[in-house]
Design a protein around this nucleic acid. Structure first.
Lengths: 231, 231
DNA sequence: ACATATAATATGGTCAGACCAATTTTAATT
DNA sequence: AATTAAAATTGGTCTGACCATATTATATGT
């Protein structure tokens, strides 16, 4: 089988990536202009533009009309875009995503406790209290609940884990789930949050994981019922 | 502040994605030609090509010279490409990646046991035996070890989790770690695998997770020493 | 000397036409 | 029916032109 020859566009993309790495360019750094790239790489502006557009779509570069080309931010927005399309094209099993969330959150608890990290109990309690207020005032509780879980991941002091979890959470939020909980369940949820905080303080992994599992129960139940309805 | 107007290329990308979704196009389906797109969307071939290239780089399309444009496979190769560049540009903390692996694998054990799944004990034992053979014959043991862990993830019967774990494993393998283990440690590793299989059979989550934690210990130790050397 | 307006320049966006390269399809020949 | 050659289709690359956006330099007024 013949070796598949790379196109000039592909070669150009590799050259640009190498240039970024070799020059230690960081996010928002000014990159070479199209004209400079044409001169340096000795290819047409068409090839340069196709390469730049491709690198832009995966977040490596950012192109601004009239201004120039810049190194992209190191965030995972492009991965989120890919997953969004993947979700739209192929869908996803909600149960699978929920299981992944459970893996992540129970894992977070374990990391915090096994690494003997000192969690920001005050801030977590503050978030949970705001959650309680929202429950009482019948305002949006989802944001508070999500902030609580997000802060737990942050408390693991593992930035890569935090970013991956963020991507997955974003993927998860693409799924439209109408789990409208009544006040009683919401209050229970608030109490579970409180118990998780306590368990973290007491460095009790078993309890923390048990309560978190409890926390997920209503949503798993909901999905179980949805899946049952489809049978 | 004025609303930032989308370029024709961006509009074209959206139109193409919509076309894929609305026509339920699946991977490897033949897509429209450049000529057809020019006629249909009434933009220049330059705009079409830039859009196609961009969509190719995120895996949504696949362009073959002389043949045509096809819908991309639904795999996560493009995500791996993004993470590879991200790793090369920004690096990653090995400890953080290892912690994530631990979260994933301990979580996999939990999923298997809590979902009361019947694991393929025979196949897992087979893989582990091949691992043992490789240890005895001083051949490459990494592939067998990785296959074992990969199979564990597969036994969770959660495809999304499996694919995400695969992406992270790929990211992890970018890190060159020279953890050359001696035979004694490798044999211990083999025994740990055996114990994990037994614990799964007995549906003993605590034992399975404890042994898996044990399994990770040498690498965490290695990283701890590396980090110590840098202090 | 400073502020404002205008012009020039730099940079990216889009277009059309031409030509090359790879693959497929069609037609001609045996 | 099989083989070969030609034609057509499809993507790759190039050049030059012109438009749009943003920045920089220059001119003008106070």
């Amino acid at each position: 089988m013949a070796i598949q020859r790379a196109s000039l566009v592909e070669i150009t993309m590799d050259r640009i990536k190498s240039h970024i790495l070799e020059n230690n360019l960081k996010e928002n750094d000014k990159f070479l202009s199209e004209k400079e790239l044409v001169n340096q790489l000795q290819v047409s502006r068409t090839v340069i533009r196709e390469a730049l557009r491709s690198l832009e779509s995966i977040g490596i570069l950012k192109v601004k009309p009239g201004d120039g080309t810049f190194v992209g931010s190191g965030n995972f927005d492009s991965i989120k875009t890919i997953l969004k399309h993947h979700f739209e094209a192929y869908g996803v099993k909600i149960r699978e995503l929920l299981e992944i969330r459970k893996v992540i959150e129970l894992g977070a608890l374990r990391l915090i406790i096994e690494k003997e990290l000192k969690v920001d109990v005050h801030y977590l309690t503050e978030i949970n209290h705001a959650y309680y207020q929202a429950i009482q005032e019948h305002t949006d509780t989802k944001a508070h609940d999500q902030l609580f879980h997000q802060q737990l991941i942050k408390e693991t002091q593992n930035q890569t884990f935090y970013h991956f979890a963020d991507v997955i959470q974003d993927y998860f939020s693409l799924v439209k789930m109408d789990v409208t909980q009544n006040k009683e369940n919401l209050l229970m949820s608030y109490q579970e949050h409180q118990k998780i905080i306590q368990a973290l303080q007491q460095k009790n992994l078993q309890t923390a994981q048990m309560v978190m599992t409890q926390h997920f129960k209503p949503v798993f139940q909901y999905i179980h019922e949805m899946e049952g309805n489809k049978s």
